[in-house]
Design a protein around this nucleic acid. Sequence first.
DNA 1: GGATAATATTTTACCAGATAAAATAAATAT
DNA 2: ATATTTATTTTATCTGGTAAAATATTATCC
Lengths: 395, 395
Amino acid sequence: MEQRNATRLRVLEHIRTKGAVSRIDIASALQTSPATVTAATADLIAAGLIKEIESEAISAPGKRGRPRVLLQLDAKSYIVAGLKVARQGISVILVDFEGSETASYKHPLEKPRMSPSEFVASIRSALDETCAQIGRSAKDLAGVSIGVAGLVDANRNFVYWSSSITERNIDFSNLLSRHVPCPAFMDNDANLVAKAEQLFGLGKGLKTFLVVTVEHGVGLGIVLDGQLYRGKRGCGAEFGHTKVQLDGALCQCGQRGCLEAYVGDYALIREMAVTGQINEAMTVADIHDRAQSGDQRAASVLSRAGQIFGLGVSNLINLFDPECIIVSGTQKSFEHLCTDKVLARIRSGVVNVDAALPEIKVHHWGDLMWAKGAAAYGIEQVSILKVRELIANTP
Amino acid sequence: MEQRNATRLRVLEHIRTKGAVSRIDIASALQTSPATVTAATADLIAAGLIKEIESEAISAPGKRGRPRVLLQLDAKSYIVAGLKVARQGISVILVDFEGSETASYKHPLEKPRMSPSEFVASIRSALDETCAQIGRSAKDLAGVSIGVAGLVDANRNFVYWSSSITERNIDFSNLLSRHVPCPAFMDNDANLVAKAEQLFGLGKGLKTFLVVTVEHGVGLGIVLDGQLYRGKRGCGAEFGHTKVQLDGALCQCGQRGCLEAYVGDYALIREMAVTGQINEAMTVADIHDRAQSGDQRAASVLSRAGQIFGLGVSNLINLFDPECIIVSGTQKSFEHLCTDKVLARIRSGVVNVDAALPEIKVHHWGDLMWAKGAAAYGIEQVSILKVRELIANTP
DNA sequence: GGATAATATTTTACCAGATAAAATAAATAT
DNA sequence: ATATTTATTTTATCTGGTAAAATATTATCC
């Protein structure tokens, strides 16, 4: 049964990445027989996960034979919520099964750090508020996925530590099942963005790639052979806290020399503060503006961040040798990390092989990147759930 | 058939890690049925890979029931050669199927860098020489495995670059099959040591661990979920060339700031040279001696290497979150990398989680570490080959 | 010392899941 | 209308694993 499950999911996954594809093409792409695909797609249709495209006669002009029937995700079948908890508030997005947004909402938070029960209560009310927008209730959701900054063991909804939560080592399974009326999943926010790149973004169809997220901190999601790699204790991929300098700059985490302490938003603002030219709420966008209008010090702050970032990325390539590295961020605020000089730094740090460097792709998401990431993970988890149910009910 | 293959190999692998184990125990350990184990072990016995232990009645005293029959590797069934090509010469070891040494030999090399055909010819004569010691010929070997320093794509015996070879990007498949009269495999030397740790060493039974090799350079083998991770192009795990300092010390590879340029043998000797107190052929052991007899400068050279090494290891833990890190070397010449201060540095660089730090194990091998590593890989590849043959011949 | 119980392994009958081959469906070309 | 081509479904098998029954081998109990 586990085997069958996996086959169904593989077919579903392939339909998702291809968008619309015929049974024959699935069979040849997955190196399996048409009979198996017929069986699998029949099940997936029964579960409401996919559907046949109505518009008949897609037969290529001048091509004989029975035309292929295209299959695609059944977008309207399920609604999934993605949440990202940040200090300013909770971003929520509702998406259909294809990942298209149907509603979004920003829930304010009184305090950036909450107890576990406050945390779950906030999630619940953010969820209710958003569902109300489309005249639905949280009960109607097929799943909810929650992204938090910090160290999370996603397999057991266990949070070692998060900047949003006052207590350490909390198992959220019970709290969530009590207070959220649908299946709920948690993970580290960078992992979720990696999931989004894999399902909908620049990682579509790739097997082995890394997603680096840049914003306040620097995060990493590792996808190896199509799977998110999480490490033994569920707390790997802490790229932002790899050390780039012995006893270097002080980081938020309390340690010294972390990459994040040179590249994260707060690090840049801290540097600008040293120059004395800082006002209350300076942002990285402001630093960009200054640099562009000729401020040498601002330019130098950005440039050094880029060099350190490039060093870090070259280390990732040296260790993982991935197909591709995707740099993802919400705004245009990380342009300084994608310059030719940064690329040169990366190149000069990667061990020299006569094979092309892994492609480095840049993805500028909008504000909802993190929430969309959570939604992507939610869609994947719901798929797994539905397939499991389906087979459990097949006698 | 592929599935059956995998089952056979899983059983064989379990027998190897346990040493001697009964069918029942295999079944429960691998979560499979006794019937399957009976079938698998029958096949493995037919292939000469395992055998039943003769000594009957191992029944525990006072325990009723039919006693278990223990199974173990059939040590005498196959001979495998492991080779390590270094600048001083080629180390060869012949092992039985359990990995026990039956002969070893050090083949001198006139020149440290050879053309591909010279390279293969040297391997052949080193092999012949060693086999002669036990009155055998290279034809009698079940497989030969060759380790080289450099960038190797093991899946296709392709060497991007190696310090032992004058040309780049050589596909050795044809050369090897023409000049070596038995199946031959190549890989990066650090990967091979990781294989040895997995099959015979401190990684026995572990799923996810890293092996750091220290000697002239610094190497890394990555084992994830029981498999060697090699990256997309087959050239990942270049730990020695991850950068620990922006525009830092010059490395053999021509780049700056590589970890190896602070930790490798040549880096220490270079540092000592700066102090002016160097003779022709100083070794790391000499530096240790001096440090122990109170030479502050020698102590400081070793201490800095340790700190940089610790920084690198903490980065590995932050990225991979493995079960365990094994530091492997040939001599006692890396004691300075295993001190309490180094451990403290590692600890101070790993992101703080309330879960135990991955265990850090130190493995002092003898001189033949690299060759034994190659042999381990050879044994694994021969196992795969034999199982494949077996099933191909089962009608 | 034979009956009984306990435990390991093998055998047998069967099940699950994938597939080859045949059948069917749906189009174009003649 | 008929033949041809291609896609999908159905059916009969094949593969690999497993539950249950059978068998093997021991200890323990009268």
